[in-house]
Nucleic acid binder design. Structure first.
Lengths: 254, 254
DNA sequence: CGCTATTTGTGCGTATGTATC
DNA sequence: CGATACATACGCACAAATAGC
């Protein structure tokens, strides 16, 4: 295989995605994996342009997008530097707790209550919580930050009868675990987790401060009490470029 | 009954992503979630164009992309119909086995060996397998199908000394579990799994028959033998629109 | 059979965005 | 910065296939 000056065939034309956006997406990923940028310094624009087989203007457009995102910082006359931080590892285990899981990896953990309502349970929610369809459930919409950046957007449902006042308590405690405790539930376990990935929707783009085309990791989780009774059904969207999910085996379950 | 419906502001212009691609991505997702298409039949093109606030041509371009992907099927004079199948659930548990996990959900499970080599272990691989950096390891590149569609592309590393002949045996057995057994390893356990998501790269786009902009779920896994000694380090890319990962809790571990 | 309504397929002109030089 | 080429998106018109009356 002769590789004299083989351009990397990773950037596709006529794909419906502008070259600058493909390059921006790729650079964001490689920066996140530590493959691009030595000691926080990006290669010069002409080198990047040659590598991707595009004009320097196109690379500049991609860099401008990443500067806008906060991934890069360009300094005239000096170069372009990486601003981004590492990806946080979110552990999924039997006792999955948001702040415990990220504690030690980041500072400034916080969860904000964006919205809440009492509504009749949909088929999915009713099935997950073992309630009758239409039974009243509390829905909490929350946004979580770590290191000052939004990392996840969650929608959780709770039995309105058993956990009356959940929204008010959560807005004060800012913690599901603490809210459960106030409501008399000392402990709960993760029953199951389903993971998918998709493009972020408009609302999540805004809340999670993502750019169009960004990816969210979606977890659908059911938590149960010590008797195995479901207490929470939730859908959480994680910014895929800021979070990775970690599933420990039986031997390293903490 | 042309009722002036409110345009959904989900399609963004000047975002660097073509309208037809945004529409295709959104339709693919809604079809997967059952939100679009009643009884396998899509709304007519003019209705979709009105809903997304674009020209009918633009919707047609999006539909053409999904037809190319195998998600839709268009019949002149009749309509456009959904071809897609449900998303398969891939369980991640202590004894994670590819074919066992998908058995019962799909037919025609098969794994092809695309490439293999013996190479010196990189830092990551050496660390994961508890070997010295540069120690010889076997690398297997595999592609797995279910229901006649490619679902995952994996890269696995094995200690070349302990598992000599792995590539030849795998190309015959087409199963990691069976290959391990032939090499004297009767059982192995999943030590840890890390899940991320990103845009598919050019090679995966081709192998997994995806369209540009498609998403892959990436799992980084370590398997260990009964003594806790690592036997396999692997990176698997799953087509995110065909697979979801399922992590059972302690009570439903199978 | 023809007629009509519906729906997908095609052609063409034009304006704008993207990328190169 | 302008000139050029191509992709994208729109608007309109019409052809082709299907289905129901």
């Amino acid at each position: 295989m002769a590789q004299a000056k083989k351009k990397e065939a990773v950037i596709e034309r006529r794909s419906g995605v502008a070259l600058w956006r493909q390059i921006a997406d790729r650079m964001r990923r490689e920066i996140g994996e530590g493959l691009l940028g030595e000691e926080g310094r990006m290669p010069p624009e002409v080198a990047l342009a040659e590598r991707f087989g595009v004009n320097r203007h196109t690379v500049r457009t991609a860099i401008a997008a990443l500067v806008q995102e906060g991934v890069l910082r360009a300094e005239q006359g000096r170069g372009t530097f990486i601003e981004g931080r590492r990806r946080l590892a979110y552990p999924i285990r039997s006792r999955t707790r948001f702040s415990e899981g990220l504690a030690g990896q980041s500072r400034g953990l916080a969860a904000d209550l964006l919205d809440h309502a009492v509504e009749p349970a949909s088929l999915d929610v009713a099935k997950a919580l073992c309630l009758s369809p239409g039974a009243p459930v509390i829905r909490l919409e929350t946004l979580s930050h770590a290191d000052g950046r939004p990392v996840s957007r969650a929608r959780g449902w709770f039995d309105a009868e058993r956990f009356a006042g959940m929204a008010e308590i959560f807005s004060r405690t800012r913690s599901i675990t603490a809210s459960f405790r106030e409501l008399g539930l000392a402990d709960y376990l993760r029953h199951s987790t389903t993971v998918t990935a998709r493009h972020a929707e408009a609302g999540d783009l805004k809340d999670l401060q993502l750019s169009p085309g960004a990816i969210v990791l979606v977890t659908i989780a059911i938590n149960v009490d010590a008797q195995g009774q479901p207490v929470q059904y939730s859908e959480t969207r994680f910014a895929a470029d800021r979070i990775e999910l970690h599933i420990p085996g039986a031997d390293e379950t903490g």
